[in-house]
């Protein structure tokens, strides 16, 4: 289980924007710091939270650390949506049954 929960990690707008950036390509801290006008240590702090939540992973490339998105970490958030997705799919089927059953009566 991740050390930091996913909801807390993505509650922060800056971290959501970092995730958006990483969704297009893996990036270094320097790359990520540029659009935010933030210090590299501040960005590193956000990346640490995201890493602990299992949303990003890091690897070394020469002298740099490269961060990339770990989509599996978002699975937990998706669970809620998927519950409702199944709910509506089944209700659509129930509506179909209802329409068939009442066809003669209308």
């Amino acid at each position: 289980m991740p050390a930091t929960d996913v909801y807390a990690a993505i509650a922060d707008p800056t971290r959501r924007r970092i995730l958006d950036l990483l969704a297009t390509a893996a990036r270094s801290v320097t790359d990520l710091a540029a659009p935010f006008q933030m210090s590299r240590p501040a960005v590193s702090q956000h990346l640490r939270v995201l890493r602990e939540a299992g949303l990003v992973s890091e690897h070394r490339a020469g002298r740099q650390r490269i961060y990339q998105l770990e989509p599996a970490g978002l699975r937990e958030v998706d669970l809620w949506l998927r519950s409702y997705q199944r709910f509506w799919q089944t209700k659509f089927a129930a509506l179909g049954d209802y329409l068939e059953a009442t066809d003669e009566q209308d």
């Binding site: 929960d5 996913v6 909801y7 807390a8 937990e76 669970l79 809620w80 998927r82 519950s83 409702y84 199944r86 709910f87 799919q89 089944t90 209700k91």
Partner: peptide, 25 residues
């Protein structure tokens, strides 16, 4: 989410909701 799930980040609640929605369905 956090208050309802006692700091579990919503996992328990999501699981419970998933159960009830599945059963309802």
């Amino acid at each position: 989410f956090r208050s309802m799930s006692g700091g579990w980040g919503g996992r328990k609640m999501v699981a419970a909701l998933d159960r009830v929605l599945t059963e309802l369905a």
